[in-house]
Each structure stands twice: as structure tokens, then as C-alpha cells.
Design a protein around this nucleic acid. Structure first.
Lengths: 180, 180
DNA sequence: GTCTATAGCAGGATAGAC
DNA sequence: GTCTATCCTGCTATAGAC
């Protein structure tokens, strides 16, 4: 009986985050355990299965994203805050592409973003409301989110090719904030 | 020696399309061969490997998408043509979610959409140019594409939840065509 | 709580007979 | 050109010893 346990829920979660911030290694029970100096089977004492673990990682990643956006946009005038929030969203996706993908991975309805999603949602609602003058304009938030998410997706799947996106990001963001 | 060959490149391609238009069955060499009444190993006479096959499918799917958009938008006044093109893009993604996903799957640089992508690109360039009055406004095309692609992605990953997207599609499309 | 060992599954791909 | 047979890899998850 090795007394101080070699790991814990938190340590596993942290290791999974680290693994997914790397470039290549897939998130499998084996590779994850290896980074902790463990055998894969040991992880099952802490998480029931791979999916449960993934949900925890996704939740934590969503928290990170929200924290980044909040920190960058708080205390700025409305229009600027919204622009900075958009840039920060993009930056997170660049820095942590696999965490970003995990956040947006389809999940069974029960686990559909319990609280974290709502927080980010309310933050954006406030930012947009301050710019357009319409509070609680959910359609505007969705439209903006679509644009950002699509930009990330097309970029990461290499659709922009050699010519790159040009100034589409600024143009689109500007057009949306003006047009909504 | 069964003389008339049981299959061909074209038949395999068609079967793969059909398979991916269904809901569940994954595109594996085994399942694909099964729909043709063949063994998996037989497919390798016609396609070098799975990836080569997938590229062919993706190309064909892109052709279908372009054909849909062209048919729906041609002969309409500019503003309406653009709106209809957007709707058709969304409709294709709804009807053929797995083909849509395949089109946007990251591929090694060599195979990056040889000709089909360009055609769709030029079509959209024309549509947008007719609305905004600026020909060859690539950034505008990219921005619109981001919005559409993002909408599809968020919808299919269930991010809109129970409340749904509201009228975000129309709002966003309108805001973009106006603001660009 | 961790270990070894193993069951079980799924998929890609090849060898060689016909 | 298709078949059977087989190999290989990589993964999830469990059983039971310690």
C-alpha cells in the first residue's frame, strides 16, 4: 500500500490539461497515465471512464476561456471591450486548439454545460448590450459567436490556404457590431 | 475469375457517398465493402488506402454543395441571391452533415482543394461583389463564410441548446451584408 | 490505490490462393 | 479482381494480486 497516493482527481485533471496543451499526444488513458508515472488502469479509481474525465477537462477549459475574456475586456469602454473579447476568443483557440475543440464537442444532453457556459453567455450578453443599446439580445450574441467559431474552424482546418484570411476578422467583427 | 468486376472506382465512390448520407454507419473499409457485397481487402485494388478514398469523397461532396448553391441562386437579383446562397449552404449542412464535415476536414497541403474549392470561391466572390459593389472583396467572402460555417458548427454540436438559435441566422446574415 | 495481466473490440492493411 | 486468412496497432475497461 503506497501511502501517499500517487495521484488524485485534481492531479489527473491537471495532467490531462497539460497533455492537451501539447501538440501531438492524444488524450488516451494510457498516455495520460504515463505522464503521471502510472498505469492506465489506476485512473479508473478516480474517474469512472474516459468520457467522465473528458467532461471535467472540457468544463475546466471553458472556465479558462471565460477567465481570459473577462480579464481582457473588463474595465474598457463597450465597443473596445467587445473587440478585445473577440480577439481573446481567437487567441485562446490559437493557443489551445485542442482544448477549444473539446469545449465544443457534442455531449449527451444531460451534461450540456451546467454552469460555465451560462457565465460566458451572460458576459457576452452584457458586452453586446452595452454596444447596441439592446439588453438581452440573444440573437446578436449567437450571431457573433457563429462568426468567431467559424473563423476558428476554417483557420484550424487550413481552409484559408496560402493567401490567409486577410483582414476578414476585423472586417467581419466590425460589420457585425455595426450591423447588429 | 468473376469476369464483370463486381465493382469499380465510381461504384465505390457512390457507395461511400450513400453510406455517409446515412446517420450512423462509419466510413470504414469493412462497412463500405459490405454495402457492395465485397470484402474489405478488395477495395484496395481500386483505392490505395482509406485516405485516398476520403479525398475523392470530399471532392465530390464539394461539387454537390456548389451545384446546390449555384442552382438556387442563379438568375436572382444580387441581394436575394446572396441570401438564398446562405440558406442553401445551411441546408446542405443539415441534409448531409457528415459530407459537410468531410469537406472541411484538414488535409495535407498537396490535396488542398484542387479545383472545386476555387469554383465555389469565385461564385461567392461574384455574389458578394454584386451586393457590395466591390468586386474581388476576398475579405468579405471569408467573413461571410466564417459566419455560415460557425453557425453550422455550433448547431451540429448542440451548443444552441433548448432555446435554439432564434433568428440569429437572419440577423447575422443581414448585418454582414449590410455592414461589409 | 496501484500493479500485472488480460479480455475485448475495431480498424487498416498485406500475402497468397484462386 | 476477389477471396480467405492473418497481422498489426491502438484503444477501453475489468479481474485479481499486493
Amino acid at each position: 500500500m503506497p501511502y501517499p497516493a500517487k495521484t488524485s482527481r485534481e492531479a489527473i485533471l491537471a495532467a490531462a490539461l497539460t497533455l492537451l496543451e501539447g501538440q501531438d499526444a492524444p488524450l488516451t488513458m494510457r498516455t495520460l497515465a504515463a505522464t503521471l508515472g502510472l498505469q492506465a488502469s489506476s485512473l479508473y479509481r478516480h474517474y469512472a471512464d474516459r468520457e467522465t474525465l473528458e467532461e471535467a477537462v472540457a468544463e475546466e477549459a471553458a472556465r479558462m476561456l471565460m477567465s481570459d475574456i473577462t480579464a481582457a475586456s473588463s474595465g474598457r469602454p463597450p465597443h473596445e471591450a467587445l473587440r478585445v473579447a473577440g480577439q481573446q476568443y481567437l487567441l485562446f483557440a490559437h493557443r489551445h486548439p485542442r482544448l477549444y475543440a473539446l469545449i465544443h464537442q457534442p455531449r449527451p444532453p444531460a451534461a450540456a454545460t451546467p454552469g460555465t457556459g451560462k457565465d460566458l453567455w451572460n458576459l457576452l450578453l452584457g458586452l453586446i448590450g452595452a454596444v447596441t443599446g439592446r439588453p438581452d439580445d440573444t440573437a446578436a450574441v449567437v450571431a457573433l459567436w457563429c462568426f468567431l467559431h467559424g473563423y476558428v474552424g476554417l483557420e484550424s482546418s487550413g481552409q484559408f490556404g496560402l493567401s490567409g484570411p486577410g483582414d476578414a476578422f476585423e472586417r467581419g467583427l466590425e460589420a457585425l457590431t455595426r450591423g447588429l
